[in-house]
């Protein structure tokens, strides 16, 4: 019975976060949310989820901390090199036929994926005609993304990933090392806009040619996944591309018919033509 009470408490806590702050985690994958809330109550020194709920209502300083637990911010530059190789070798030739391009990195967290695409687009000569949108719900993550500063110790992995993605330049061309950190070249985000946008509650905001949304949908339940993919569908141009995480697919999605598999292994889909 202990678990039952805990389940009620978690439901009420998520309701409280929504009512007070309009952040809606009620459609997130239960198992993962529970796990992260367990970490949150432990680290925030709350005895129960109900105690945490009290703080949600009465202690405004709790929200940023809670968001850092509830949103997963784990990524790398060029994570899954094969994905970026497929973008480079298979998607870029299509993109090259457009005079101007828009790319949406949905759930961009600290910006790793957006910088990866910006570097790739520069290498492929597409940067000057492209506008990048990086969106996330976590303001702290967006600030990090805008800063483009990563721990130096992560650079060897990023460099190896970049190389394996078919990188045509050296990653060290794009950052300067200072005080244990790698500061990425400001010109990489000259054509990037970072902004607050929720896949749960916000609407389409632009027409784009490529949506890259990787390892975000796994944190959503099926209904919410359908909503997010519906947004991508409505944002993409005819024959536009959608890139998902290595273990995400449209297999269980109600919008699956709107897309064709483009690079199966790398989970890249292409919008079908006029229906």
């Amino acid at each position: 019975m202990i678990n039952k009470i805990e389940d009620i408490e978690i439901r009420l806590l998520l309701d409280a976060i929504f009512e007070k702050y309009h952040y809606d985690f009620r459609g997130y994958s239960t198992a993962s949310v529970k796990r992260r809330l367990h970490q949150a109550v432990e680290r925030l020194g709350c005895r129960t989820f109900s105690v945490l709920q009290d703080r949600v209502f009465h202690d405004p300083s709790i929200l940023p901390e809670l968001l850092s637990f509830l949103t997963v911010q784990v990524s790398e530059l060029f994570r899954d090199p094969a994905y970026f190789r497929a973008i480079r070798e298979l998607v870029v030739p299509h993109l090259k036929t457009y005079p101007s391009l828009k790319v949406w990195v949905a759930g961009c967290a600290a910006g790793e994926e957006l910088y990866s695409l910006a570097i790739l687009f520069r290498e492929e000569g597409l940067e000057d005609r492209t506008l990048f949108y990086g969106t996330d719900i976590n303001p702290a993550a967006l600030r990090k993304a805008e800063a483009g500063v990563y721990e130096l110790e992560r650079i060897p992995l990023f460099t190896e990933n970049h190389r394996r993605s078919g990188g045509k330049t050296s990653l060290s061309d794009y950052y300067t090392a200072a005080y244990g950190a790698a500061v990425f070249d400001k010109t990489l985000r000259r054509r990037a806009v970072f902004s607050d946008h929720s896949l749960v509650s916000d609407a389409v905001f632009a027409e784009v040619h490529l949506v890259s949304c990787r390892n975000v949908l796994i944190y959503f339940d099926r209904d919410l996944q359908d909503r997010a993919i519906g947004l991508f569908k409505d944002s993409l141009t005819r024959k536009g591309f959608l890139g998902l995480g290595a273990k995400e697919s449209l297999r269980f999605c109600k919008h699956a018919d709107a897309f064709a598999e483009f690079a199966r292994e790398e989970r890249i889909y292409q919008m079908r033509g006029v229906s």
């Binding site: 239960t30 198992a31 997963v72 784990v74 390892n215 796994i218 944190y219």
Partner: peptide, 14 residues
């Protein structure tokens, strides 16, 4: 992760 009795989920948490 076991999401429910009838459904699995994946996560790239730490």
């Amino acid at each position: 992760l076991a999401e429910t009795e009838n459904c699995l989920s994946l996560s790239s948490e730490e």
